[in-house]
Structure formats: structure tokens, C-alpha cells
Design a protein around this nucleic acid. Structure first.
Lengths: 334, 334
DNA sequence: ATTTTTCATGAAAGCGTTTTCCACACTTGC
DNA sequence: GCAAGTGTGGAAAACGCTTTCATGAAAAAT
């Protein structure tokens, strides 16, 4: 008693109508007499008919699926964005094909291609770096795309994020105002615009406002892992640096725990501000003072923007900047 | 200069062969003369032809896509599994449609249906509870499915997880051996078999071995959030309970931080063991002693198992149990 | 030299929908 | 009473591919 798939044709036959009519009732087309509609629906229930989305996609040239390129689901920052994306996607009846890219250029190209092959109606890209090859691929395709949680260096692609320059500047200023003369800038690769271009610019801006000279030696370029934070803490310990800004929460947590484990008192001897405000920031003790980002909303707004793009609606402003905050917790004074 | 899609037909015409031949070279079929293959490949490159996966899916009745039902991507436990799933999925050239279910029965049914409609070749289900309706739907469909990180209550569905009874018993025994007479059992809903059936059984087993009578009042049923842990800590503080086992890391972190914030010394005055070993367990201070689970592997093995199922390979044992550990960190004595 | 195999390829029938025309049967309006 | 709508519904052509079957040519076997 294998469950053989029942097709639209079976329904049509059983209901004594044409496939076209069945298609109409399935798709909520109004040109169907209520009586007919009822009859068809009854047959659909009886036969437990479910439209084949693949056939549908082929015929309509719409897959009601969007592709999400994510560096790593395991990272709370991206996972939160993803959650926002997913929620509004399902609100608009889209499904999500998710692909981990590991921020690896080749892999990104590969997943982009499979996404395109699968005929996704749109793409949301998370990641901090966009190679020219990738950008070319984007413009080359007719599939709408938006960046979530990062800005395209050249602003040629719609994006949703906070203002990284301002927020970083504000964090650094706070650190300086609290009496720190030497504030370290800790981030992932500076080749990523978010670090090397925006955050660093904010850092320099704050320094300038305070009349402090920029010192190359205060810049620490590493990766986004907890372990790197731990390692960095040892380096930091033996310097006259008294505060740091970190571009990632896990990284910051590593620095914090590393420092604490070595007997450095935070925030008394060392102040720390992190920037993504994932739950990690509040799990550690002392709790990390953090730039707060509306993570879920960044994802949600990105997806909403994408729906507009897919709908060919007119977009006022393709580069959306959401408000951020600065939550003083326990790794800064007061 | 709109990029109009180039089809297999265009390639065929341009290369002077039939669609069948193009299809053959695209799919690596050996029945093509090298010279012809070369010619076709050249045209493919020249025209930048990319096979339409939707049309492919319709014709071949395979979507090379698998559905993943996940309670919440934002939860590190599930995200880790997902990562394992995704990696071996892409190893086998499958894509992943991911759906958040929020452990909500209705939503689960809904996403299952859209997954089926999309003709996924297989499904991986994460979640702690399976309603009869859902189970019925599973068996009703011809799509292979496997449970990742949970066991089907009735073992009617292939699954991959650790032994929850044994691991919990071991954790509880440790707590008892360290001198704790009253050990709380903190978990999510007991209606979920993983808690109410397996873990609780392990708890009782350990009690029995130690000759301690089971006390209903030591069972705390809550949800998996950090906040619930914080709340629970206040309750725990004013009892003579001196240790607890928690079924989730965020929950455990909440308990730990709540206790600590109220001046309770962990582990001296209160010992704590958690069970998922996500990164959270090591981020908090003191670090949480935890049952360790091969999270990534659970996901990876699940996906591997699914590929076998989709391939109709013979399965020796559909219920796979992976080894666990117990990592003594800082919330238990030595 | 003839028959049998094997190889390479093409023709065409699906796959399960959507969608564009058409056509028919009624209503309207005058 | 007739032309012009209007609301329903059917026929059939896509959609872009895979796959079966048939076929002719070349290679191997006799």
C-alpha cells in the first residue's frame, strides 16, 4: 500500500473538472463558482492532495524559496540574524535554504551558484567580506540580494546594519572618558571592511576627538574565537593598556576570562567593551558592557527589504541603518 | 542586456548535439565521446549555462535537498547539531532547507508539510517531543527521516543521540558521591520524553543505587531559558538542596549566575552539573561541569544515516547511540 | 565477409504545475 | 429581441530537464 503521489490530474478527474480549475482553487483564484470550489476542495481533502512545489516552481518560475548565506550558524550573532530572517520569511511564505560559507571565498562562490541553480527568488548574504568575483556574480544575476549585518563596501548592494563608525566611536569615547589613555582595538581581520574600514575609522575618530595620537601597536588583529581572546589576554596583561574594544562577543569573553583568570581585575584594572550584544555578553561575569544591536531586527528588516525587492517595489533607501545602543554593564566603570 | 536564462536547448543547438547529450555530459554520464564532451563543455562555458535545479528535480524526482526541522537556531545546542548536519549534507551534495519549529506542534506540522511539498529527499528532525499526529505524518510519507539529538519514544524512527539515562545517572551519582544528599533535577517540560522518561529515569536509577529515596519536591520543571535559571536560583537558595543537575546549558548558566549573584558559593555550597556541553558551559565562571556530548557528530552522523536511508541501503541499527563523557570542571568538587 | 556486440547519439515522452487563450452560457442594457 | 458584457471553466502549450527507447555506426567475434 505504497502512498503514490496524487497529482492535480487525479483531483481533476475525481472532481469532474479540468486541471485548470483545480489549479485555480488551489491558488485562490476567484474565477470559480463556490459550488465547484467546494467540490474540488472536498476531493482534495479526500485524496489528501498536496501540490508539488517543484512542478509549481518550474511552471511559475518562482520557487518561494530564498537563499541565506551564513558564515557559521554556530555563531550566536549570525544565528540571531538568521532567526529574524526566518521569521519574516515564513510570514511571507518563503522557505529558506541555508548555506554555511565559513567566510571562505571559494565556498561562498560555490554556495551562491547552487543557490542560483535552485532558482531561489532572493538571497540574503551575511559575511564581512565581499570579493570582487562575488560582487560581479551578484550583479550578473537577476536575483535580488541583500546584505544583513554588514555593509557593502561600495554600497552597490542593499544592506541592513547599524552604523559601525558611530557606534565604535561612542564606545571608544566612553573608554577614554573613563580615564583610559591606551585603548586597544581588538578585531577580526582588518581586511574585512567592517573592521579595517568602519570600526577602525570610528576608533580613530574617537581618538582624534580626545586628542590622542593613534598608535599602531594598540591594534590587535585576530579571529573571532573565544580561544583567541584567551591568548590575547596574556599579551595584554604585560602592557600598559588599560582598556579594550572588541569586535566580537566570544572574542571579548575570551579576553575577559583570560584576564580574570590571570588575576587582572575587570573593570578596575582593565575596562572592556564588546560589540554584538549576543547573550554571551550577559552570561559572563562581570557582564560585558556592549554596543547593543537589534540583531533579530537586522535579520527581519533585511528579509522584509528582500521581499520588496522581489516584488519589484520601489525602494527609497537601499542602505538601511538601524539604531544601536551602548549598554553599560560591568566591564566598564559606572 | 538582461541576462536571459540559457537552457539546455540553447547549449544543444550551439554545440550541434541533442539535449540528451548535453544532459549526459552535465551529469557525468560516460556514454559520450571525449571529443563531443569537450565541445559541449566549451559551449557550456561560453554560454555560462547553469542547469536549472527545479526542472531537474521535476524530471528526476529528486530535489537533492533535505529538510531540517530545528526548534530554534539561536540555541547553541541545536545550532551545533545543525552545523554537523550541514557539513555532511554538502559533502553529499545536498542542500538544506531549514525551518524553525519553536517546538510548537502546529508549526511543526506546518513546516513538515511545506517540506514535503518541496519534495525534499529526506528530513532531519530535532526536537524533544513528537506528537502522534506528527508521527503518523512521518510514517504516512515515503520520505526518510531521522531524529537528531533525541530518541523517538517508540523507537519507530531512526535516531542518533547519546544515552540519556546512563549519562544522567552518572552525573547524579557523581553529585551524590561528593556528599550531596539532596540533588535537584532541573529540566524542561517533563512531557518531553528526554526529560520525563530518560533523564528522570537516570536520576531515579542513581538515587536507587545510592539508597536515597526519591523526593518529588526535588524535581523542577521549567523551560530552557537563561532567565528561568535565574529565577530558579532564588527558589533553590532557601532550601537544603546542595546540588543540581540541569538539562540545558543556558538554564544551568542562569542557575549558576543567579546563585552566585546572591552570594552562594559554587561549588562549595552548591554543586551543579549541566548536560549539553555547549560553549556556554565554559564561558561562565566557575566553568560548568558537564556531561559532554559530541554535538557536531550527532548532527553529522544523523545526516550520514539519512543518506543511507535515501539510498535505500540496508541499515544495521536504526537507533544510534554515540558515546558521552562527563567533564569535571569547576561547579563540582574535584 | 558476415553476424553480433558495443558505443554514441537522437527523438520524444514524460515530470506536475501554471497560464494563456478560447468558448460557452448567462446576464444586462437598450 | 439582440448586441455587448461577464462570470466559469476547459484545452493545451509551456517550464527545462531526465530518461527510455530506437538507431546507425563502429568494433569484435565468428
Amino acid at each position: 500500500m505504497e502512498k503514490q503521489t496524487v497529482t492535480i490530474y487525479d483531483v481533476a478527474r475525481e472532481a469532474g473538472v479540468s486541471m485548470a480549475t483545480v489549479s485555480r482553487v488551489v491558488n485562490g483564484n476567484q474565477n470559480v463558482k463556490p459550488a465547484t470550489r467546494q467540490r474540488v476542495n472536498d476531493v482534495i481533502d479526500k485524496l489528501d492532495y498536496r501540490p508539488n512545489a517543484v512542478a509549481r516552481g518550474l511552471a511559475s518560475k518562482k520557487s518561494t524559496t530564498i537563499g541565506v548565506i551564513i558564515p557559521d550558524v554556530t555563531n550566536a550573532y549570525f544565528a540571531s540574524l538568521a532567526r529574524g530572517i526566518d521569521d519574516v520569511a515564513s510570514m511571507y511564505k518563503y522557505n529558506i535554504i541555508m548555506e554555511n560559507s565559513d567566510e571562505n571565498d571559494q565556498k561562498e562562490m560555490a554556495v551562491l551558484n547552487t543557490l542560483l541553480a535552485k532558482q531561489v527568488d532572493g538571497i540574503i548574504f551575511m559575511g564581512n567580506r565581499v570579493t570582487d568575483k562575488l560582487r560581479e556574480e551578484f550583479s550578473h544575476s537577476r536575483t535580488p540580494i541583500v546584505f544583513a549585518g554588514s555593509v557593502d563596501d561600495e554600497e552597490s548592494v542593499p544592506s541592513v546594519s547599524i552604523d559601525y563608525i558611530e557606534s565604535t566611536a561612542e564606545a571608544i569615547s566612553k573608554l577614554i572618558k573613563e580615564g583610559n589613555k591606551k585603548v586597544a582595538f581588538i578585531s577580526g581581520s582588518l581586511s574585512e571592511p567592517i573592521n579595517g574600514k568602519y570600526r577602525l575609522a570610528g576608533y580613530k575618530q574617537a581618538l582624534k576627538e580626545a586628542g590622542i595620537k593613534f598608535d599602531e601597536k594598540l591594534i590587535f588583529e585576530t579571529d573571532y574565537s573565544y580561544e583567541s581572546g584567551i591568548k590575547l589576554a596574556s599579551q595584554l596583561k604585560d602592557t600598559d593598556i588599560t582598556a579594550a574594544f572588541a569586535g566580537d562577543d566570544r572574542l571579548a569573553a575570551g579576553v575577559l576570562n583570560g584576564l580574570t583568570d590571570q588575576g587582572v581585575k575587570v573593570p578596575d584594572q582593565f575596562a572592556l567593551i564588546t560589540s554584538n550584544d549576543t547573550q554571551v555578553a550577559q552570561l559572563v561575569r562581570p557582564q560585558l558592557t556592549s554596543i547593543t544591536q537589534p540583531l533579530y531586527d537586522i535579520g527581519a528588516v533585511s528579509m522584509r527589504l528582500l521581499t520588496k525587492l522581489m516584488n519589484k517595489e520601489e525602494i527609497e533607501e537601499p542602505t538601511i541603518t538601524l539604531p544601536y545602543g551602548l549598554d553599560s554593564r560591568e566591564t566598564t566603570k559606572k
